[in-house]
Design a protein around this nucleic acid. Structure first.
Lengths: 343, 343
DNA sequence: TTGTAGGCGTTATCAA
DNA sequence: TTGATAACGCCTACAA
C-alpha cells in the first residue's frame, strides 16, 4: 500500500501547479500569497494522495525542527512526570515535540545530553537540572540555543525561568508548625548548590528568626533530594538536637527519610515529632502517616516553561522573565501539636 | 564564537581531502575503506574545528533518524518512569534517541501520536499502550514501521513483545493467600480489553479452581487501572460478597482503590481483609499498610523492549519473539491470616 | 583508496 | 500570484 512516499512533487502534479506553490498553499504562514481557489485544489490533491509533509526535509532547509529538548534530573522522581505532562501539552498545542533526557543529577551527563540535543537541532531547551552556577546556560548562549529554566534556577538571571516561590512555601510550613505550638524546629535542607536548597534553607532561617526562636545549628543539609540522604541527614540532626519536635524537610523524599530516621529512634510521627515536606508529590497522601506538605502546581510549572520558551522562539529578542508560582500548604497527618501540649 | 555551522566541507578543506572521504572516515561502518593515516587527519581536523555531524541532513539522505517513538498510556502512572529509563538506557547505548508520547489510554490520541511520530520519521516504535485487538500494530505494518510491544500485548503475535508472566504473578499472589488460610478470595480485575486484565483474571480463576474453591461471581472488573475505578469495583465486589477475606487486585493502583473501599466500610486491612497488588510500583512499600504485591523488573522490561527493537532495525527479517519475564512476590503488610484464624 | 556527481524533500529567493 | 532555481548537509553509487 503505502510503499512509496508521497512527496510535494506528487501533489504538485496532481494539482497542476508547481511544487513551491504547494509549499506555500500548505504552510499557514504563506497561504495568503496563494489564490484561494489554488489553495483548495492543492489541499484536495494533498488529502487525496495522503500527503504528509516531511519535517526532516523541511528542517534541513529551515534550520528549525519543531523540537524542544528537556533535561530532567530523573524521571523516576515523582515530581517530574506531571511537569513533563505540562510541557508536552503546551508544546503539542504549538506543533512542537519534546525530546526528554535524564541526567541523574550528573553534570557530565547533562553536558553530554545538551550536546546531543543540540546536534539533533532542537529549537530550544527546557532545563530542569540547573544548579545555581550552571555552565549549561552559558553553553546555550554560545550555541544560540534559547533556554528556559524550570523548578530550579541559576543565581544569575541570564535565562527566563519558572519556579515555585520557595520562600513562601517554607514560610507556610513553619508558620503551620508554630501555630501548632512547636518551638524547637529543625530543617533538613536540600543541596546548597541548588536554588531550591538554598532558598528553602534561607527562608527557614528567616521564619524561625522572625518568630524570635533560635535556629543556630538546627539545620543539616542532605546530600541529595532522595530518601536515603534525607534519612542520613535527619539522623545527624536528631543526634545533635534530640529535643526537636518538628522537622521541616526540603522536599517530600527527604521527608520520607525523616520518617525513617524517626522510626529508627523509636519516635512516632506525628506524636513525638512532626514532619513537613515540599512538592506534594503523587501518593504523598498515601504515606504512613499522610504527609503534610507544600503543594506545587507541577503541571502548570511545565506548561508555563513551555510557553515561555515558545514565546522566545517566536520573538528571539524578548526580555527574560522570572516567574514564581505561589504554592499552598496541604495539612495532613504528619503534623500535630508537640508532645505534652494542651489538646 | 560558534556563529557559523561547521560542515563536512569545512573539515574536508582542513584535511585536504574530499567531503565524501570525510564522510567515510567518520562513519564507523565505512571507515575500513579509508587509509588509517587519512582517517587520522580527518579526525584531527574534525576535532579541531568542532565538527558535529548533522543527523537531520544525514536522515534526509539515509531515511533513518536514529530515533524511536515510545507510546505510553500515562507517564504519571508510576509503572512507566522506570520502564522508560530502561528504554532510554538501551537506546542511548546504540546511539538512538527516544521520543515519548502520552496517550491517556485514548485510542484516538494513540493513533494521532503514531502518525505524528511516523511523520517525524522515527525508525521504529515501542508500544506500551496495546489493547488486545490494537489497530496500531496493523498500521505500523502498513507504514513499514518496526514495532515492539511492551508490558501489554495483542492477542495476535504479529509483533515482538516483552511483558511479565501475568499468569505466574497472580498464581503467586493467590497461593500466598491460600497459605495464609484464606478461602474466600475475590479479584478486582483490570480492563478485559487489555492483555494484562484478561490474563490476570484467567489466572486468578484457574488458581482458585485448582485449590478446589468456588470463584463464581467473586470477580469484578475495574474500568481502568487507576485508584478510583478500583475503589468502585472493589465496593461492588464487597457488596456482592461481604464475606471475602482477601482481595487480589489486578495492579497496585487498583489495590489502593481496594484500601479505600475497605476503609469506607470500616474494615481494616489486613486485619479484616487482605489485599495484594501487581507491579510493585515505586513507594508501594510506603503505603498504609505497605502493599504485598507482585514485583516486575520494570527497567528490564523497557531495556529488553528496546533491544528487541534495535535487533529488528538491524535485521529487518528477524522472526518475532515473545518474551515473558518472571515476576516475584513481595510480601509486606497488607496480607495476613483471615480473621479468626489460629495465630 | 579516493574523487565526482546526484539526490534525499523542502523552502527561500528571485524572476516572470 | 506563480514558476524556476538553488541550497540546506549529508551519503552513496559509480568512476577513476
Amino acid at each position: 500500500m503505502a510503499a512509496k512516499r508521497v512527496t510535494i512533487e506528487d501533489v504538485a502534479r496532481a494539482a497542476r501547479v508547481h511544487a513551491s506553490t504547494v509549499s506555500r498553499a500548505l504552510n499557514p504562514r504563506t497561504r495568503g500569497l496563494v489564490t484561494a481557489a489554488v489553495v483548495e485544489r492543492v489541499r484536495g490533491a494533498a488529502g487525496r494522495l495522503g500527503y504528509v509533509p516531511d519535517p526532516v526535509a523541511a528542517g534541513l532547509r529551515t534550520r528549525r525542527t519543531a523540537t524542544v529538548g528537556v533535561l530532567i534530573p530523573d524521571i523516576a522522581n515523582p515530581l517530574f512526570p506531571p511537569l513533563l505532562r505540562g510541557v508536552e501539552a503546551a508544546l503539542g498545542e504549538a506543533g512542537y515535540t519534546a525530546i526528554i533526557a535524564n541526567t541523574d543529577n550528573d553534570p557530565d551527563r547533562a553536558a553530554q545530553a545538551l550536546e546531543r540535543l543540540a546536534a539533533r537541532r532542537v529549537d530550544g531547551l527546557i532545563l530542569a537540572t540547573a544548579t545555581r552556577a550552571d555552565p549549561l546556560v552559558a553553553r546555550c548562549r554560545t550555541l544560540r540555543l534559547p533556554v528556559v529554566l524550570v523548578n530550579r534556577t541559576t543565581d544569575q538571571a541570564r535565562a527566563s525561568s519558572v519556579a515555585s516561590d520557595d520562600a513562601l512555601g517554607v514560610r507556610l510550613a513553619v508558620e503551620h508548625l508554630l501555630r501548632l505550638g512547636h518551638r524547637r524546629i529543625g530543617h533538613v535542607a536540600g543541596p546548597a548548590a541548588l536554588s531550591t536548597g538554598a532558598a528553602r534553607r534561607a527562608s527557614f532561617a528567616a521564619a524561625i528568626a522572625a518568630a524570635g526562636l533560635d535556629t543556630a545549628g538546627a539545620i543539616v543539609e542532605a546530600a541529595a533530594y532522595a530518601i536515603e540522604p534525607g534519612r542520613v541527614a535527619a539522623a545527624a540532626l536528631l543526634d545533635r538536637h534530640p529535643g526537636l519536635t518538628a522537622l521541616v524537610a526540603a522536599n517530600d523524599l527527604i521527608a520520607l527519610g525523616c520518617y525513617d530516621a524517626l522510626a529508627a529512634r523509636g519516635l512516632a510521627c506525628p506524636r513525638d515529632c512532626s514532619v513537613t515536606g515540599f512538592n506534594d508529590m503523587p501518593f504523598a497522601d498515601r504515606f504512613a502517616p499522610p504527609l503534610t506538605t507544600v503543594r506545587l502546581a507541577h503541571r502548570l510549572l511545565g506548561a508555563t516553561a513551555a510557553e515561555l520558551l515558545l514565546a522566545e522562539l517566536a520573538h528571539p529578542r524578548l526580555p527574560k522573565r522570572q516567574i514564581r508560582l505561589a504554592p499552598e500548604l496541604v495539612v495532613r497527618g504528619s503534623t500535630a501539636p508537640p508532645p505534652g501540649a494542651p489538646a
